[in-house]
Structures are given as structure tokens and as C-alpha cells.
């Protein structure tokens, strides 16, 4: 690990505008620092600045940036009214990691692309301009949607996929004021600058996530992975589906580990709305999702996998 200066922030103003790398749970950052993929000159420890409460906000809930994944998943309000979020969090990592990992940090976690993490292969994300070893390499876990010539890495997390389906907002404090960004707009596609993974600007700090008013309906988080527990998703589906008299009255869907960001396509939700659920309808939904899907060899299987997983989730949610 490269040497760095360490300091503790006393409060939020200490952290906002800082040039240092912020550290909270550190479960991803310290791992990458050991690999020297991340080499910050300075770390600012923000664990003592508050932001660790879950509080009502309007008809919704505000989850502080430093609320641990464990506490968020165990919160009685989250479990009752936004069970999708609890389920997604519990589908990820291990109990030990969830006890450290935070809401804000989870949103900022980096990809698990092996070429990004090995610190020697060409990687435009780690070292812009060097190329992408994943294309033509071992790319079984990589993206099939929204990729670019520069990068085919995925956003690997589960929590943000649920937040995307729920249409939660990220609250961000900046030097002059604060702003909110939909989770759906927080992460960005790789384009020609895959080193940028989200819209956070230098000096900005995530202060929390707000969940909108609860949505009625069945909430399902389906994660497909190589092990039954403690493994990243090959793909995941987060779904909120409400039925009314045999028809789909409302649908919110997001997809994990298919792209550089949690994938949300409003056309799928529109397609399903008002329709009688049938396997043919589910297939049409998958057609939309996968319209521009592109496999890179070892991850070709994700295209039929996404189709089948979406159909399975819709069948479960609608009782077909």
C-alpha cells in the first residue's frame, strides 16, 4: 500500500470541498489500496460526522450516507415499506462486510473487472488511454448493455439496483449548496471516459439517499450468481409489480450487473402497464431490454440469462 496522510473529519463542512479521498467503511477502498489500484495521497475519515440515521422525510425515508448496510437492511420501516432495498442489500457481500459498508460508499464502489483490479493489464478505467483487456479477454462477468469501445465493466452492486427500481434520490452536499440526483442518473455509462463512474464532482459528499413514498405491490430481488451466497451477481432483477384485476397496474424494474450502471429502461415499465401477464408479454419486455445487447464472447450467456430471469421474476410477481 502506498503511504498516505490520514485525518479525521469532525463534521460535514470538514469533508465538503476536501481534496482527500473520503473513507467510511473502507471495505472496497482499502482492498483497492492494498492492490495499489487506488493510491490516494490523503485519506479523510468521515466516520464521525453523523449522517448515520434513518429518518422519515415526507412520505418517504432518508437513509444517511453513513448508515451501514446491515442497519439499513434490518430497519423495520425499510423491511415493511421498501423490502426490495432490504432484500437487495442482504443478497450482497457477507455479514461482516455489511456491518462496515455504508449507504454512500456502496453507491461509489468500483467495478470487479479483473483487468481493472490486477493493476497491470491495459485498462482505460484505471489508466485512461491504455486500452481494455476485457475485450478479447476473460469477460464472463462483463456488461452487455451500454458498453463502449473503451470499457465493458459493470457496476457490481445490489443495493443501487433496488434504489434505481424504487426511484430513490442521492443527496449530495457541495461547496456552495446541496443537490439531489436520481439514483437512475447517478451512475454514468463508460463512453470514452470510463474513469468516471458517477456524477459526483470533486469536493462533493453524498449525505444520504431518500426513498420516495412506499409503492404498493410485490417487491422481488432476484440475483443470479455462481454461488448461492457471498458472490457478485452475474445479473439481477429488482422489481416492484402491482396487479389489479388480472392486469399489471404498475411496474418498476431495474437490472444489475448488465451495464456500467444499474440499468433502468422506462419503456419496459410502459409496455407492461395495463397488460395481462403472459409469457409472450414477458418475452416482449425482454426484447426491449435486450434490443441493443452485445456479448463479448464469454459473457454471451448473459443475453439469454437476462431474458429468462426477467421472465421468471415477472411470472413470480404476477402469479402466472
Amino acid at each position: 500500500m502506498k503511504a498516505f496522510d490520514y485525518a479525521r473529519a469532525a463534521d460535514l463542512p470538514d469533508a465538503v470541498g476536501s481534496d482527500a479521498k473520503l473513507i467510511a467503511g473502507g471495505t472496497n477502498l482499502l482492498d483497492l489500496m492494498k492492490l495499489e489500484v487506488e493510491t490516494p495521497d490523503a485519506l479523510l475519515d468521515i466516520n464521525r460526522i453523523g449522517l448515520d440515521l434513518i429518518e422519515p422525510e415526507g412520505d418517504g425515508l432518508r437513509v444517511g450516507a453513513l448508515v451501514t448496510n446491515s442497519d439499513c437492511a434490518a430497519d423495520a420501516r425499510v423491511r415493511k415499506d421498501w423490502p426490495l432495498l432490504s432484500k437487495a442489500i442482504l443478497a450482497g457481500a457477507s455479514p461482516q462486510l455489511r456491518n462496515k459498508a455504508t449507504t454512500g460508499g456502496n453507491l461509489c464502489q468500483r467495478t470487479r473487472c479483473g483487468y481493472f483490479m490486477d493493476n497491470q493489464s491495459p485498462c482505460n478505467k484505471r489508466e485512461p488511454g491504455t486500452g481494455c483487456a476485457a475485450q478479447g479477454g476473460f469477460n464472463r462477468i462483463h456488461a452487455i448493455l451500454g458498453t463502449s469501445d473503451a470499457c465493458i465493466a459493470t457496476y457490481p452492486g445490489d443495493m443501487a439496483v433496488a434504489l434505481s427500481a424504487l426511484d430513490a434520490q442521492v443527496v449530495i452536499a457541495g461547496r456552495s449548496d446541496s443537490r439531489t440526483v436520481r439514483v437512475r442518473d447517478f451512475h454514468v455509462l463508460p463512453g470514452d471516459a470510463p474513469q468516471h463512474e458517477n456524477v459526483l464532482q470533486p469536493g462533493e459528499v453524498i449525505t444520504g439517499v431518500t426513498l420516495p413514498a412506499p409503492v404498493e405491490g410485490v417487491q422481488i430481488y432476484r440475483k443470479v450468481r455462481d454461488r448461492a451466497s457471498y458472490a457478485f451477481a452475474l445479473m439481477s432483477v429488482a422489481a416492484v409489480i402491482r396487479m389489479d384485476q388480472g392486469r399489471i397496474a404498475h411496474a418498476q424494474l431495474a437490472f444489475g450487473s448488465l451495464a456500467h450502471k444499474p440499468w433502468h429502461d422506462p419503456r419496459i415499465e410502459e409496455l407492461l402497464k395495463g397488460e395481462t401477464p403472459t409469457p409472450a408479454l414477458f418475452d416482449k419486455a425482454a426484447d426491449l431490454l435486450l434490443e441493443d445487447a452485445k456479448g463479448y464472447g464469454a459473457n454471451d450467456f448473459k443475453i439469454p440469462l437476462a431474458r429468462r430471469t426477467l421472465a421468471a421474476v415477472l411470472a413470480e410477481a404476477t402469479g402466472v
Binding site: 490520514y6 473513507i23 473502507g26 471495505t27 482499502l30 482492498d31 492494498k34 446491515s70 457477507s94 455479514p95 461482516q96 462486510l97 456491518n99 462496515k100
Partner: peptide
Amino acid sequence: DHGQCGACTVHVNGRRVNSCLSL
């Protein structure tokens, strides 16, 4: 030493964590 195996598990304020992934 990368938070994957759990051999380093200790309790911090009563909660289990990977002591390798903490300073």
C-alpha cells in the same frame, strides 16, 4: 487479507467485521 475469507473476523463495538479491511 482482502475481506473474502473471514479468518480475521473480530467484533468492533459488538459487531463482526473483517479486521483486514480496516485501518
